[in-house]
Design a protein around this nucleic acid. Structure first.
Ligand code: ZN
Ligand code: ZN
Ligand code: ZN
Ligand code: ZN
Lengths: 146, 146
DNA sequence: GTACAAATGAAAGTTGTTTTTGTTTATACG
DNA sequence: CGTATAAACAAAAACAACTTTCATTTGTAC
């Protein structure tokens, strides 16, 4: 994610264009894998001179709330973040070993949503869908979970 | 979940049949909604005289690991648990307002899994799927999130 | 440039969960 | 039944991932 591109995104969210926000977006944008807040912190610190960890948490939260970054679920109940260039509604295939994230273009839940509404009469507001496994490379190397 | 039924489940998991494990299973089995560890703790305490919160966590973890209880995802980073009598592979429709959980009989991810494997060459090991919204009753009452 | 709301850092606080350690209890076996 | 043994448990403290607070700095609109 380029500087000007990040600035456009931030302005569209009515957020001020600050060096920290741009740095966090660039950091995630350079990765094809997910990162924790602390990992983002370590990576952006050198570029900025200094940045507080609470600021990183705040920025990631803003970006996740605006669906610019996606939260990745893991069993260690830490929060992980992934910036996906694809802005269409879709979900992710996540490698348990190397953290690589791939898009699954299909959502496939519209049918299920309709079925729920038809059968139970409730209202569907959101859904969580994430597929876990080993990416092609890790699968070959038969690596185990980190 | 009856006492003997719980005992059978525990024995099949090679776990000792203890009053605390039975109480936790009964507690969740009586609910059609999800509970937090602390909520389970409050509910089983009177029946047992006393039980430590770490014990509740340990038992819930054992049961979740054995797929006897399901973890429910929420945006507060607390863990919630639901004991589902349905032992087939399936997923849940969860009410954001009253915590009611309903089964969705279809998984519908086999096709997507095959597509991932075909396109990326990786290996799929698990998936997370949860639909959130308002159940029929809460939808009528137009309740908001708790 | 100036005003002002928004953003940030540093430190302290919160809280859900886990670890540790010593004691109790379920279960198998004689 | 009694006993041995490993598993389960309580209590307390520890842990770690976040969050809050509040004083200071910095974008942004005019
Ligand atoms: Zn991988
Ligand atoms: Zn979807
Ligand atoms: Zn409901
Ligand atoms: Zn499934």
């Amino acid at each position: 994610m380029e500087h000007e591109q990040g600035a456009v995104v931030l302005r569209s969210l009515r957020l001020k264009v600050t060096p920290r926000r741009l740095a966090v977006m660039n950091c995630l944008g350079e990765e094809r894998a997910y990162l924790s807040a602390e990992e983002v912190w370590h990576r952006v610190r050198p570029r900025l001179g200094s940045i507080g960890l609470p600021t990183v948490y705040r920025i990631l939260d803003e970006l996740a709330g605006a669906h610019i970054v996606t939260r990745i679920f893991r069993s260690d109940r830490k929060q992980y973040y992934f910036l996906c260039p694809n802005q269409e509604h879709h979900h992710h295939f996540v490698c348990d070993s190397c953290r690589h994230v791939e898009d699954m273009d299909l959502c496939g839940l519209d049918g299920m949503t309709r079925e729920i509404v038809r059968r139970s009469g409730g209202r569907v507001l959101s859904h969580i869908l994430q597929v876990n496994g080993l990416c092609a490379e890790c699968s070959k190397q038969n690596r185990e979970m980190p």
